[in-house]
Design a protein around this nucleic acid. Sequence first.
DNA 1: CTGAAAGCGCTTACAG
DNA 2: CTGAAAGCGCTTACAG
Lengths: 306, 306
Amino acid sequence: MEKAARELSFAISRSASSLVTGRTGRVAVLVPNLDSWFLGAALAGLGPALNAAGLDMLVYSVTTAEQRAEFFDRLPARRNADALLVVSFALSPEERARLDDLGMPLVFVSQHEQGRAGVYVDDVEAAERGTRYLLNLGHRRIAYLEPADASGFAWSSRARLDGYRTALAQAGIDRDDDLVCQVAHWQGPSLEAAMGRLLSLAEPPTAIFAETDDIAFRLLTVLRGGNVPVPQRMSILGFDGHAMAEPWDLSTMAQPARRLGEVAAELAHGVINDPEAYRERHVVLPVELVPRGSTGPAPSPAPRER
Amino acid sequence: MEKAARELSFAISRSASSLVTGRTGRVAVLVPNLDSWFLGAALAGLGPALNAAGLDMLVYSVTTAEQRAEFFDRLPARRNADALLVVSFALSPEERARLDDLGMPLVFVSQHEQGRAGVYVDDVEAAERGTRYLLNLGHRRIAYLEPADASGFAWSSRARLDGYRTALAQAGIDRDDDLVCQVAHWQGPSLEAAMGRLLSLAEPPTAIFAETDDIAFRLLTVLRGGNVPVPQRMSILGFDGHAMAEPWDLSTMAQPARRLGEVAAELAHGVINDPEAYRERHVVLPVELVPRGSTGPAPSPAPRER
DNA sequence: CTGAAAGCGCTTACAG
DNA sequence: CTGAAAGCGCTTACAG
């Protein structure tokens, strides 16, 4: 029957049915960019899972202030999507209020907010674990490299930095902000500059925890170029579980990016079909330490004087 | 006026308007995956450009036979999208015919087909140029590594391999199929095996042209692990212009992935609003050789006997 | 130039 | 259980 209808009319018009049911069969996804490994992997999990649930995926990559205004003005509008998935995107209070006024069901992905559904990892705990791993290898001077977010659109919890600090404090190591550097995520000389600062400290670090694998990759290159052997002189630990971490032998805190997308699809289905039950549902996924060749024991201190 | 309407009703219902205009304001994008660098970059160009033209982007990542059947059965249906962008996806003749029957306007991205709009690069010419660059460095034994497409969903023209062969022939070098290897794109031991085969030839290659940067990256790792210095003993040339090619100092044939997406958006707008003029429009974008540290002069032949 | 009516293609509630 | 009618929220062509 349905098949016959398909063959005759070739397709049911979603427009007509959504007009009467009030359902569009579509979910909007808001992302701060599309060319990062993490978002690609998350969308690769999300898209097929939504499709399997009979939902189509509308993707909005919002990277400029203009696009941002346009999006909140025009696109997420009531009746154009059944739910909005906010992926690693820092909503302003006004934007958040506007979405609530619209009655748009919200799901947060890779970030969390009170009173709304969300799926994410426990960044604090994972960063603590990563730092403890470096401590267990004998490192006492551990630097932390965080990305400087130029646009300010990406959601950031500072949670990883907090976890790093907590673990150091618990090991009885005094906080030293000289060891925390901000670097541009994709390019620019700031990474070399940061390395220069770290390597010229009176007590330079013997390990570096990078907030993302992308930073860790660039770090590996800079250290190789600067003849700093990894891990003999400097251990590097990343965060993400990037597909290239394995070929590059990078130790990393691997988060299940694809799985985040799949769970997000379940939550989207939930907030649409059973809003009461799902409005505040939070799913926390595990992060796994994957030790590889970029981390090793702390070098024994160079003899200063004899 | 429009603003007042927005404030009152919060949004115009696309469903209602599309019912009467026959336009959905949506473009469907079909991709064989979502977690490759190239597709991420292309979508990063495409999405915002579509949005700027007032079009929403529906993304369908089709990676299994089941999803594929489902997609062609249900999703691209008439009146659910104004056009379909096919990105690096190998349509079967039946699928192609079905889309034509639906009267769905088509745009091919990073691939081309007779009689339909498309935007892509000249792979043959670019591969010729890359190969000639290696020849000019003095290399005579140049291997070629191509990805084995497990699913068979990705569009492949063999054009790069053709360009490689043409350039060698023009240089008067006999074709040697021992130098052409297939390797799995993301993982598996096949890359090591391929290297083993190449390095044990009577006359091993002094340079390798990798069909994608992803393969080139893994190649660099394997060679480093095998103590084959790059580029002193082996030059590596990639293809794509991956964001990590620069930090990894990989020479590559850089294609404008983001720009491909932007032009695709223009073509989509074109085939929707002026089908006659755009139906067969083809846009060919340039590929640039970016020489970096992974390529160098051919080593002088090792003395065999004296 | 303005305003009321018809109709896009479905779903649903209701009459038979 | 089956089938005709009403109506979802817009746009457009037409009457005034």
